[in-house]
């Protein structure tokens, strides 16, 4: 690989933009295609297929066999609620490979003492979320139990097409949430994308166990997108 390709690849990754390295497996010739340029590429169809799946692989094309190394941005987890569950969820998610951000306007919750080494933003979601550039490589989890904080954040996560969206609360709490979101004109199909009650059904009781059930559900959604 030429150093300039590697450099450009690392730049795109740092900027959270998807990119594919196209390699001729016989001759070794290589080029880099940025996601934004894929639509104009001669290999448009296979490139777009791989950008969607995020998977690398060998492909037969009109120009012969090519190997595609697909780099999609590292998954992120954005949480509303600097609550007890988040104190367990943040470190578990980091271990699994997520960059974690917590948003909570309540400064008593969003303190550095409670969340060492985590990016905590003590602002309302309408101010905190837009600059984060939340995208389809982001998982979003609403944990405050407070509609004033969770509802606008959920609406934002739906609009940005997060690959996983979950909200804490019982079936009853969620039914009330569904009514409120409908009242704001959110479509049924979008509301159905919210995982609630949140987490896999593993009988979790403690905050840390609930965090495990949430990260399990996020992983299932990421790795078995069709099934979960």
């Amino acid at each position: 690989m030429r150093l300039e390709i590697l450099k450009s690849l690392n730049e795109e990754r740092a900027a959270r933009r998807a990119v594919i390295v196209v390699t001729d497996p016989t001759g070794g010739a290589q080029r880099l295609v940025k996601a934004a340029d894929a639509a104009r590429d001669p290999l448009k169809e296979v490139l777009e297929k791989h950008l969607r799946s995020g998977k690398s692989g060998m492909e037969e094309t009109a120009q012969g066999k090519v190997f595609l190394t697909v780099h999609v941005p590292a998954s992120r987890l954005v949480i509303t609620g600097a609550v007890h569950i988040s104190q367990a969820l943040a470190p578990i998610a980091r271990l699994v490979g997520y960059d974690v951000t917590i948003v909570d306007p309540r400064t008593a919750f969003a303190s550095i003492e409670r969340f060492p080494d985590v990016n905590v933003i003590a602002e309302w979601p309408d101010k905190a979320l837009p600059p984060l550039g939340i995208d389809r490589y982001t998982a979003f989890v609403a944990l405050t139990h407070d509609p004033k904080i969770d509802d606008p954040a959920l609406t934002h996560a739906l609009a940005r097409d997060c690959f996983y969206i979950g909200a804490l609360g019982s079936k009853k709490t969620h039914a009330r949430r569904v009514e409120r979101l409908k009242g704001q004109g959110i479509k049924d199909a979008d509301i159905a994308r919210i995982h609630a009650p949140i987490g896999l059904d593993i009988g979790a009781v403690s905050p840390a166990e609930i965090a495990v059930s949430i990260i399990g559900e996020i992983t299932a959604r990421l790795r078995q997108a069709e099934a979960a």
């Binding site: 690989m1 150093l3 590697l6 450099k7 690849l9 690392n10 990754r13 740092a14 780099h71 590292a74 490979g97």
Partner: peptide
């Protein structure tokens, strides 16, 4: 080592 660290190390 996460994937991004590996390619950054190469560079």
């Amino acid at each position: 080592a996460r994937d991004e660290d590996i390619l950054k190390a190469a560079e």
